[in-house]
């Protein structure tokens, strides 16, 4: 699999990362290098090996169903560029 400039542009756009046009070929090359490495890893025979998800054997921690958080509207909105009447205000997005 090979990443061309067009794919690099698309991936950057999906991730909302601004990439200058002249930087795209180099970005595509970096992707290709990473994918090349992954391809190399894929040569290892892992038939019958459970995927390892954690170095230490841990059970997913759970919480009880209780309300312990919230009621901090001012803090939640404090970093918003624009907030009105308790809402985040953003440029109009409508289908």
């Amino acid at each position: 699999m090979s990443i061309d400039t067009e794919t690099a542009r698309r991936v950057a756009k999906l991730a909302r990362i601004a990439v200058e046009e002249d930087r795209l070929p180099a970005l595509a090359e970096e992707f290709n290098a990473i994918l090349g490495f992954i391809e190399q890893l894929q040569e290892v025979d892992v038939e019958g090996v459970e995927p390892m998800v954690s170095v230490t054997p841990m059970r997913l921690p759970r919480r009880e169903d209780a309300v312990t958080d919230g009621n901090q509207q001012d803090k939640v909105l404090s970093n918003a560029p624009d907030a009105r009447e308790g809402f985040f205000a953003v440029p109009k997005v409508v289908e």
Partner: peptide, 22 residues
């Protein structure tokens, strides 16, 4: 009572952004 991954309330009709954990 609480959300899937936080301790904020699921109550409908609260003040906007009141039931929000970080």
């Amino acid at each position: 009572q609480a959300k899937l991954f936080s301790g904020a309330s699921t109550q409908f009709g609260a003040e906007p952004n009141a039931n929000v954990a970080f």
